[in-house]
């Protein structure tokens, strides 16, 4: 039933609605090829608007991550998310926080937020995070949080290193050995 667009300037045989919707979403959120016939300007504006909306929703779930990055939040998020379809705001923020942590680019308040989440929930990066049933420790960027019976406490804040001309705060050394799970 459904034809495959041949490209070129003549009107392409139209694929079915399901296929065309899938093509459009992939182009908007997963770096897919722009579907035939769509004007590039509106497509780009839609892509940017979706990213802004998504950044706002992730910021609601991860307020310290967004606040810690401050003016850099919108671009940091957009660069990270441009070709990554959303996995939901909780996981989006979590994945981004871990990625920034790996690059030593996680601000201290955001590290504390991440440590608290890591202590509270088990997240394997693939499936939805689930509450931990046994006591656990969460660590990120020098911050240490502990969870016992569902209650989480930040035991050690992330060190605040004097910033160099507005750069990201480097991770503190020696944060690995404090407590073991």
């Amino acid at each position: 039933m459904t034809g495959t667009p041949e490209g070129g300037s003549a009107p392409a045989p139209r694929a079915g609605l399901a296929e065309r919707q899938a093509e459009l979403v992939a182009a908007l959120v997963a770096g897919g090829e722009p579907p035939a016939g769509f004007a590039p300007g509106p497509l780009a504006a839609t892509r940017a608007a979706l990213l802004r909306k998504r950044a706002g929703e992730v910021a609601r779930h991860w307020p310290l991550l967004a606040a810690g990055l401050g003016a850099r939040w919108p671009t940091t998020f957009a660069e990270w998310a441009a070709r990554r379809p959303t996995a939901g705001s909780l996981r989006d923020g979590w994945d981004l926080a871990r990625a920034l942590h790996d690059r030593h680019a996680l601000p201290p308040a955001a590290a504390e937020e991440l440590a608290v989440r890591e202590a509270r929930l088990r997240y394997d990066g693939v499936r939805a995070p689930r509450p931990r049933r046994v006591p656990a420790v969460g660590r990120a960027g020098g911050a240490v949080a502990v969870q016992i019976a569902g209650r989480v406490r930040l035991l050690r804040p992330a060190p605040r290193v004097p910033t160099r001309a507005g750069d990201g705060v480097p991770d503190a050394a020696g944060s690995e050995l404090w407590i073991s799970d």
Binding site: L17, E19, A22, L24, V25, A26, T46, K53, R54, E57
Partner: peptide, 15 residues
């Protein structure tokens, strides 16, 4: 808001 297994994250128009 979704198609082909991907979430758009917001409302998209129909043809």
């Amino acid at each position: 808001v979704r198609a082909g297994g991907l979430e758009a994250g917001h409302l998209l128009p129909l043809p």
